[in-house]
């Protein structure tokens, strides 16, 4: 068995909001609560969940944009959770990030050529001719034309800007790319292009992805494995197609059944689990299982005892006291 490329162990992240002087005083947001996850080389791990579930925070912790409150991160065998900015530098080349809003992450006053060349200038000793050649190569890889190099970001459509963002991210031949909602801001027709591009790049450049998105069908399309998050914890983890066809955790079932499917024949026949209410505040999360306030099958035990993420079947992990067995789960969602 190969070693994982990235090992996230018991990672927690707490933010302080407000201040000691505000009317409610200093409050602590538990954005991530004891998250453990291994990412194998070459796979795509999809992180899904509603807004505020901690999926983006986890992405930012992996790239060390945020400091961990506790826990550890091992990348290719090295513990990177306590490295200083300076020690982190050589590793920055190997871990890259792509953001949701391509226009916000590209400096509008610089040409595409310079935007893509920037990481090369900062991290390598390439000469200017080499850089020019590499930029041309990268443009070609992400499906842009050579003459696009001299243009400014505002001259591009959203999809093309995301291609520029991807070209920047792969410029240094990274091993791991954290993609934070990379297609959410795009139109459906363009979204598919980017999803395909990411799949091609993964194959061609042997990349490992952590793919964060709220669109479940996109995540299912790109992911090898899926981690479903709720209020800062992973509640279900497993093989992508398998999790979608046989979700075990009641939250996963509700989440999947809530997605409207563009298939007229099936509408109405799907048993939808509609969750009531909103996600509780991460400042003061519910006791026991954090999902019990909205869970259709919650019992006394769920209110008092917090379920741990435990193995269920060959490749599935579930944090629930009463997970559906494989066929029951299938029944619950699609009769």
């Amino acid at each position: 068995m190969t070693a994982p490329l990235l090992e996230i162990s018991n990672v927690s992240k707490r933010f302080a909001v407000g201040s000691r002087f505000s009317s409610q005083g200093l409050r602590i947001v538990n954005a991530l609560d004891d998250v453990s996850l291994s990412v194998m080389p070459g796979e795509t791990v999809g992180l899904v969940g509603e807004s505020g579930c901690g999926k983006s925070t986890l992405g930012r912790c992996i790239t060390r944009l945020y400091e961990l409150t506790s826990g550890s991160l091992r990348f290719a065998g090295t513990d990177i959770s306590s490295l200083s900015t300076r020690e982190m530098r050589p590793l920055r080349r190997r871990i890259q990030m792509v953001f949701q809003d391509p226009s916000a992450s590209l400096n509008p006053r610089r040409r595409v050529r310079d935007l893509i060349a920037e990481p090369l200038r900062v991290h390598t000793k390439m000469g200017s001719e080499e850089i020019t050649a590499r930029v041309a190569e990268l443009l070609d890889i992400v499906g842009l034309k050579p003459d696009h190099a001299m243009r400014f970001p505002h001259e591009f459509s959203g999809g093309q800007r995301q291609r520029i963002g991807i070209a920047r991210a792969i410029a240094l031949n990274p091993e791991l790319i954290v993609l934070d909602e990379p297609v959410s801001a795009l139109d459906v027709s363009v979204q598919a292009q980017i999803v395909n591009l990411l799949a091609d790049l993964q194959e061609r450049l042997n990349l490992t992805y952590v793919f964060i998105a709220h669109d479940l069908s996109v995540v299912r399309q790109v992911s090898t494995r899926i981690a479903v998050m709720y209020l800062g914890s992973i509640v279900e983890l497993g093989d992508a197609e398998d999790v979608f066809s046989r979700p075990s955790h009641p939250y996963t079932q509700a989440l999947i059944s809530a997605v409207p499917v563009p298939d007229v024949g099936k509408v109405g026949s799907r048993g939808r689990v509609v969750l009531t209410g909103d996600v509780p505040s991460p400042i003061n999360p519910p006791s026991g299982c954090r999902f019990h306030t909205r869970c259709p099958i919650a019992q006394d035990r769920c209110r008092n005892e917090r379920p741990v993420l435990r193995q269920l079947g060959a490749s599935r992990h579930v944090a629930c006291h009463f997970p559906s067995a494989a066929d029951q789960a299938a029944q619950a969602v699609r009769p």
Binding site: S189, A192, Q193, V195, S217, V218, Q221
Partner: peptide
Amino acid sequence: SIPPLVGARPRRLRTIPGT
């Protein structure tokens, strides 16, 4: 171009080229 939520996953999504 919408990725399916059930059934087999296509290796590639069918796309609309261009913008």
